[in-house]
Structure formats: C-alpha cells, structure tokens
Design a protein around this nucleic acid. Structure first.
Lengths: 205, 205
DNA sequence: CGACAGTTTCAGCATACGCTGAAATTAGTT
DNA sequence: AACTAATTTCAGCGTATGCTGAAACTGTCG
C-alpha cells in the first residue's frame, strides 16, 4: 500500500526475514514453517523471501549462520587446565544456551537436523568445533573421539530436556545448579579412566 | 482395479496403514509425512486413512500406541538391587532401542514431540513410567524427581546421538560397550551423593 | 433372496505450498 | 534530466495438502 521500490538501508528487509524465520524454525520447526508465514511475521511482502534467499533451504542456511564469536566462550573453555576444564565447559555451554539469540539458532538446527541435510551437516560441524576441541590433544585419536562423543551425549541430553522439551527438574533449576550437577560427569568423561573391556579397535590401554 | 468392498480380516488394512505411518514418522518426521504417501506406502487407497483414523493426529496417536509389554524390561530393571540397578537400567534401555519395532515408535514420538502436543504428552508419560520408576521410592519427592531428571538427560543424550542423529563414536560402538561406558554415570545419578549447594527448595541433606 | 452394516474406491473441495515473472517504484550516478 | 541497477509489489502457475461425500462392492444374517 505504501508503494514499491527500495526501503531503508540495504539488507534491512533481509534481516527482518531472517529474524522471523529463526523465531519460527526454533518454535514450530522447519517443515511446519511456510515462507508466507515468515514473510507475514516479518511484516514483509511474501515475494521478498525467494528474492533474497532463492529457496527455503537457502533461508535455512542464512538462519543457521551464527553471528561472530558464536561459540567463543565454549571454545575458550578448552584452554583451561585439565582439572577444571569439565566444569568450565559445562558453564560455557549453559551460558550459550541461556542467551536467547544463540538458543534460537541452536534450536533451529536441532529441530531441523532430521529433515534437512544442511542442518545435519551444521550439527556435526558444531560437534567437532565445540565438543571435540575440549578433549586433550595428546591422546590417541580413537580415545579422543570416544571421550568427545561421551561428553556430547551428556550435553545433548541436558539440552533436549531443559531447552527443547522443557521436561523434568533439569528444565526449571537455575543454570548454576545444573552446572554443579553435570560438571562431575563431564569431568569424568574428560579425564577419568574408561572401562577397559572395549570391543575390537577400541582397546585403550 | 480389483473392485470395492471389504478385503481380508477386519483391521488388516488399518494395521498396514499404521505400519507405513510408523516407518514414515520415524524417518521423514510428522510434518513432512502426508496421508497420501502413507497410503501409497501401505498399498492402500488414500481415503482409507481418514476413514480409520479420522484425522492426521488420530493416525499419530495410533502410531504412538505401543504393543503390550512395551517397556517391560526397563520397568523390571527398577526391581534390581540398588548397586546393580544403574547398569540394569542402561542395559534394558539399550535393548528397547536395539529392537527395530520399538525404536520406530520411540523415534516417531521424539521427532514429533515439538510439533504435536499429543506426542509431547506421550514423551512425558514415558519419562515418568520408565525413568522415574527406577529411582528409590524411599527418597523425598524432590530428590526423587531430580535424580530421575538427571538420568533422563544421560539416556536421552545417548539416544539422540546414537539412534536419532547417528553422530559420534557412540553411534557405531556395540551396544554392550555403550552400556559399559554409561552405566557408571547412571549409577552415580541413582545413588551417589549429589552436590550439596543447591538452590531454594532443593537442599537435599 | 433381500436387507444391511461395514469396507473400499473415487471424484473433488477448499486451502495452502514453494516459487516465477513481470510490472512498478526507488535511489544513485552521470 | 536521463539512465541504470536494485528493490518491492502483485498476480498466478503447478502441485500438494487434509479431509468429505457419495457411490460401488463385500460378506453376513434373516
């Protein structure tokens, strides 16, 4: 109704679309989100979405692109001395998820991982960027990836229950309490000896 | 082409539809599954789906309805003596997920939980039926639910990485090895003392 | 045989989807 | 002022969606 033609700064409408898409992907999920509804939430003409992002998966990739220094705190925890590293890692992960902007991106990825290869790829990437980095580099590769995978299970489980499903006590406790509860487990996976009887190719000691 | 009218035993077509829907919900997910594609996979006329299940969520509820003695082994683990219960619970959970039929149901629930309230409800129900039952009944309620929630985080994390996303070493290791690796953590959440500094209303000792 | 309830088929409605193409408008450059 | 490139609007194509309604068929029972 206002008329056609450019409006405000370049990329202003695109940013509004990304914000609205993030909100929708993070709540309704990817498949249940339509380009038309995104445009409406963004207060923008529906045609603008394909114009800026070409396809729906194009929009998804823009949504999953994190701002600068996204997991910097988590990566920094990998520099801590070994005996405090478990707790530092949990703490950094919690603060990442307690930030609504970051949580929206991560939720979008998790809720889309089983529908779009791009999201699955992004998830694997975050796994090796953030989790694998925390494990001691001086270990044999097989033990390094195993310990990282164990840590991932505990972190992911906390995330699903607290931030995705909001199920159980873990969802309502204060963040520091959750940190206190999980830090010992992460520290255990990080540095304690693991069960010795492992299958072929997994013998550690 | 064969002609109209009944075919085989009563409920035979309905069963084929449920089986096809389970397969699709467990892989593509709920929103990405169409009633027409389910009918095609089941080798059945599209009109039969609304006929037997009325709505798409009706079909979902049928899909989520487990066969008899679904989590019996897991529930039975709750009867074990306390010092072996952690390992028994992990073992039972693993065998539930290693069974393809059960895994299909559970995958359907997990992939749908964030899109349909019915699936979320079913998830919470499984949580209290299976996980809460394993914690000692002689504890104060607040500690009981907290320990159950901690166990849920570790189990859910393993499930997501191994059975849903198939990411990391945990996805490829033999089931018994995974059991060996996780049992100590579950046992810890089950019976070991928890950090004493907990927030208001959560002081344990 | 004839009524009858239960099942299968089929046509289709109303709506929504992702995406395209072209026209209309703007802002910036010369 | 003329020209150009980028942006916004809008109409709509082709396809798919969940679901409905009625007709055609089957098997069972009187």
């Amino acid at each position: 109704m206002i008329g056609r033609g450019p409006r405000g700064e370049r990329g202003e409408q695109a940013a509004k679309i990304i914000a609205a898409a993030r909100r929708s992907f993070a709540t309704r999920g990817y498949a249940a989100t339509s380009l038309r509804s995104v445009a409406q939430d963004a207060g923008v003409d529906p045609g603008l979405v394909p114009y800026y992002f070409r396809t729906k998966t194009g929009l998804l990739e823009a949504v999953m692109q994190p701002p600068e220094a996204f997991g910097a705190a988590v990566a920094a925890a990998a520099e801590q001395p070994m005996d405090q590293r478990g707790r530092a890692f949990v703490q950094a992960t919690m603060s990442l998820w307690e930030d609504p902007a970051s949580a929206e991106i991560l939720r979008s990825i998790i809720l889309t991982a089983d529908q779009e290869p791009a999201a699955m790829h992004r998830l694997r990437q975050l796994f090796s960027e953030l989790v694998l980095a925390v494990v001691s580099h001086s270990l044999p590769d097989s033990e390094r990836t195993l310990r990282a995978s164990l840590i991932a299970t505990q972190i992911v489980g906390m995330v699903m229950n607290r931030y995705i499903w909001q199920v159980g006590d873990i969802a309502t406790l204060p963040a520091d309490t959750v940190t206190d509860l999980l830090a010992p487990t992460i520290q255990h996976y990080l540095a304690d000896p693991l069960p010795t009887k492992l299958g072929d190719g997994w013998r550690l000691s």
